[in-house]
């Protein structure tokens, strides 16, 4: 299913992605990351139901990506932004630049929950609920 995208559609995807993520704030530009192949396939494999709507959107693409993005219907804009962003953010160089390595399991510290002294002060305050 993910292979259903033509070269033309993949190139359109790359052109649009390159203006969405031109690089900045230490994040690499999409243009150097081959986003239209493995990263895009990865996303479409995880979310197969997005292939058909993506193709429909890409088939409307003619030339200028900024104009194209600003003229998309809300729903289509959201959808292409999910696919471009998920593709871009799945790339190892990007993750590295973000210092983000996924949602990690961490053990709970045993040194208390934080701000304990304030909680103990609050406990001494008069009750503030309205009883009836």
């Amino acid at each position: 299913m993910t292979l259903a995208l033509s070269d033309k559609q993949r190139n359109s995807f790359a052109e649009i992605s390159n203006v969405v993520y031109p690089g900045g704030y230490n994040h690499p530009p999409s243009s150097g990351l081959d986003i239209k192949n493995a990263p895009l396939d990865h996303v479409l494999r995880a979310r197969n139901e997005l292939v058909v709507p993506l193709i429909k959107i890409l088939n409307q693409y003619v030339t200028e990506p900024n104009t194209f993005l600003s003229q998309l219907e809300d729903h289509d804009f959201k959808l292409i932004m999910i696919i471009i962003s998920a593709s871009y953010l799945s790339i190892p160089q990007v993750k590295e630049s973000l210092e983000y390595n996924g949602q990690q399991a961490m053990s709970l510290g045993r040194s208390g929950f934080g701000a304990e002294e304030l909680v103990f002060e609050l406990m001494q305050q008069p009750k503030r609920y309205r009883d009836v």
């Binding site: 203006v19 993520y21 900045g24 704030y25 994040h27 804009f77 932004m81 210092e99």
Partner: peptide, 17 residues
């Protein structure tokens, strides 16, 4: 507003973590 380009990088930088 729709956000892409440099403002999107800025937004991620500001937000993440």
């Amino acid at each position: 507003s729709r956000c892409w380009g440099k403002p999107l990088h800025q937004r991620i930088d500001n937000w993440l973590g």
